[in-house]
Every structure is written in C-alpha cells, then in structure tokens.
C-alpha cells in the first residue's frame, strides 16, 4: 500500500501522460486543415494579435507553418515550421531576397523555397 501523496502523484502523472499521448495522437492524425485552422489561428488571433507582428520574414512564421502543414501534412509541416523558426531573422536574411510589404522590408522565404529540392508541385497541362 502506497502512501496517499505518492499515489496521487502517480495518478497525476498517468493523467498527464494520457493527455500527452492523446494530444500527439490527434496532432499526427488530424487533418491538415484542422491543424491550420485551430493551432495557427489560435496563435495568430490570441498571441500574435497582442504581441504584434515582428517576424522579419514573408510569409510570417505562423503563415509559413500553416502553409507547410496544408501542403505536406502535419508531420512534415511541423518539421518545416521548426526549421523556419530556427532560421527566422538569421542567415536567411542575408541569403534570400528582400521584399517590401506594406512599406515594411521583409525577407521572402515561402514554403516553395524550402521544398523545391524534393517536391515539385503538380502543374496544369
């Protein structure tokens, strides 16, 4: 028989692990559109709206993430979004083309500039 506080602690851990597994399950199996609409829109509407758009890249990291998920699905979209977060505002600024959007200088780095080496979009004949 375990002491009461140890048992509670273990139960809490089990619950947490259960929710994490559930989250991961839905994250990797959910439709791309859902990921785009819910996760990214939540960030854009409730965090970025308050925090302000300070992303030096165009499209911004959140839009990039939603487009990557839309184009390549949840798993690869998530990986590409993480890659973009690391590159955002660093060496990419000196290597990609600058553009001016609404009077603000940004660096153009769309999804197509990062998947061109393996993904060729189906083109209309």
């Amino acid at each position: 028989m375990l002491p009461r506080n140890d048992k509670t602690h273990k139960d809490n851990n089990r619950k947490s692990i259960f929710f994490i597994v559930l989250f991961l399950f839905f994250f990797f199996l959910m439709p791309s559109a859902w990921a785009e609409n819910v996760l990214v829109k939540f960030y854009q509407e409730h965090i970025s709206a308050v925090d302000g758009n300070r992303c030096p890249m165009y499209p911004s990291c959140s839009v990039y993430a939603s487009r990557a998920i839309e184009k390549h699905g949840s798993v690869l979209g998530w990986v590409m979004a993480c890659d973009r977060l690391v590159r955002c505002g660093r060496d990419e600024v000196y290597q990609s083309r600058p553009i001016i959007i609404k009077g603000r200088k940004s660096v153009y780095d769309p999804v197509s500039a990062n998947d061109f080496w393996w993904f060729e979009k189906e083109k209309k004949q």
Partner: peptide, 22 residues
C-alpha cells in the same frame, strides 16, 4: 516529471528533425 519531459521531448523532436531538414 514525465509529463513535462514528454512535452519538451515532443518539441525537441520537431526542432531536431527541423535541424536535419534545414
């Protein structure tokens, strides 16, 4: 704190894979 370790691990997996992809 296995739950926290799981969450961080999940985030880390994304950044580590992103590092290889990038």
């Amino acid at each position: 704190n296995k739950a926290l370790a799981g969450v961080i691990g999940f985030v880390e997996t994304g950044f580590y894979s992103g590092n290889i992809y990038g």
